[in-house]
């Protein structure tokens, strides 16, 4: 069906091979998808279940379609992940009573999820400004958040984002421009605060 680093999904009628290759592909994409979900949802346990949903939906869709070829499986999977997160964010709006994990629970999950990085400075950078930026994503609309996450963290081209979100490039530009305007302060600190030091 697919190689672990395949750019293209290919047909395989052998179910056992498909399952094994899907597993390999999942392993190669899992971290990226989890981080994307975490950045969009800002909740580790919810990102965990959104990631699982994404791969299950992908598997079911591939099964339904009889493992038809996919030209860009990574973008296709990203689209499933983004839509899964958008659905969760939409339903979250109605769940005023939704229990947020207690602060200490969230810290425990974070400790479990984040392995020690090689560079202490990078870790501080990531936790401090990155954390602030992620909290600031609440200021964005759902579409702006999706566009910003795909551009800022995944460095995807605007055309690629347009394809994933089924929008035209002009609309993506407008969403991104507005997102950057709303995150002006955080982005300033991220890129320009230490300008004198370097």
């Amino acid at each position: 069906m697919m190689g672990a680093m395949a750019d293209r999904l290919e047909v395989s009628l052998d179910r056992e091979t498909s399952t094994r290759e899907f597993g390999a592909w999942m392993t190669s994409e899992q971290k990226r998808i989890f981080l994307l979900c975490k950045r969009m949802l800002q909740d580790i346990s919810e990102a965990d279940s959104a990631t699982q949903d994404t791969f299950i939906k992908a598997w079911q869709s591939l099964n339904r379609s009889g493992f038809k070829d996919l030209d860009n499986p990574a973008s296709w999977l990203t689209r499933i992940a983004v839509n899964t997160c958008l659905d969760r964010l939409r339903s979250r709006r109605w769940q005023f009573w939704r229990r947020r994990p207690a602060q200490e629970d969230e810290e425990n999950i974070l400790r479990l999820a984040a392995a020690a990085g090689p560079n202490a400075e990078d870790r501080i950078f990531a936790t401090e400004i990155g954390g602030r930026l992620q909290s600031a994503l609440d200021k964005l609309s759902l579409r702006q958040r999706a566009v910003f996450a795909l551009r800022h963290y995944e460095d995807r081209s605007l055309a690629d984002i347009a394809g994933i979100l089924d929008l035209d490039v002009g609309t993506v530009k407008v969403h991104l421009f507005r997102a950057i305007e709303k995150l002006r302060e955080e982005l300033h600190d991220l890129y320009f605060r230490d300008r004198g030091k370097q």
Binding site: M26, D48, A113, A114
Partner: peptide, 23 residues
């Protein structure tokens, strides 16, 4: 910014096990 943070292999493996069992 783009460089993905490290994630514990233990966490990812547990997630994969859960996905496989659901599949």
């Amino acid at each position: 910014v783009i460089a993905a943070p490290e994630l514990s292999e233990e966490f990812l493996a547990a997630q994969r096990r859960s996905i496989h069992s659901q599949l």
